[in-house]
Structure formats: C-alpha cells, structure tokens
Simulated scan of single mutants.
Amino acid sequence: MKLQIVKDSKGKDTGVFIPFEDWIAIKQIYPEIEIADQELSQWEKDLIDQRLEKIKNDPKSLKAGQELIEELKK
C-alpha cells in the first residue's frame, strides 16, 4: 500500500490519501469502516467523556491493548 500524507501550507499533516484499490481491500476486511465518519450519538459522546475523565483522574486504570484482549478472553 502506498499512502500519501496530505499537509497544509505550514507543513502540518492533515490527512492521508489511500489508493482506491487499497481502500476497496480495506473495506472488504473491515466492512464497518464506512460508518466511521457518522456522527456519534449523545450517549456515545457522554460515555467517551466519562472514560476520558476516569483516565485523567486515574492514569493507571488505562490498560495496554494486548492486556485488555487477554483479559476479555478469560
């Protein structure tokens, strides 16, 4: 996959260009990706805010992804 980073006039990364063929392949693996740009509902935003506040107040409560996956398998 040959990605291209899109930059603004100040050189700051602002986006990524994915070749169309690669985008089709990604959508086949992750069909739910099409809904990624939809607006979150208020309850989802509230839940995210609550979780971020908890992490801010107790950073040690944040677990590594692999650790979380292992815990979920139990």
Rank of each mutant, 00 (worst) to 15 (best):
K2F: 12
L3I: 05
Q4P: 04
Q4V: 13
Q4S: 03
I5K: 08
I5C: 06
V6Q: 10
V6N: 02
K7C: 11
K7P: 01
D8V: 06
S9F: 12
S9A: 15
K10P: 10
K10L: 07
K10N: 13
G11W: 05
G11M: 12
D13P: 11
D13I: 09
D13E: 15
D13C: 01
D13W: 03
T14A: 15
G15K: 00
G15N: 09
V16F: 15
V16E: 02
F17A: 02
F17I: 11
P19A: 11
P19W: 08
P19N: 04
F20G: 02
E21N: 15
D22R: 03
D22H: 12
W23N: 09
I24Q: 08
I24G: 01
I24A: 12
I24P: 00
A25L: 10
A25K: 12
A25C: 03
I29Q: 04
P31G: 06
P31E: 03
E32L: 05
I35C: 01
I35Y: 05
A36C: 11
D37T: 13
D37E: 14
Q38E: 10
Q38A: 06
Q38K: 15
Q38P: 05
E39L: 08
E39P: 04
L40C: 05
S41F: 07
Q42C: 00
Q42A: 14
K45V: 14
L47M: 08
D49T: 06
D49P: 05
Q50Y: 11
R51C: 15
L52M: 11
L52P: 03
E53Q: 15
I55K: 09
N57K: 15
D58Q: 12
D58I: 13
P59I: 02
K60Q: 14
S61D: 11
S61T: 06
S61K: 02
S61E: 13
L62G: 00
K63P: 00
K63S: 06
K63G: 03
A64L: 13
A64V: 14
Q66T: 15
Q66R: 12
E67G: 05
I69L: 11
E71Y: 07
L72C: 04
K74P: 06
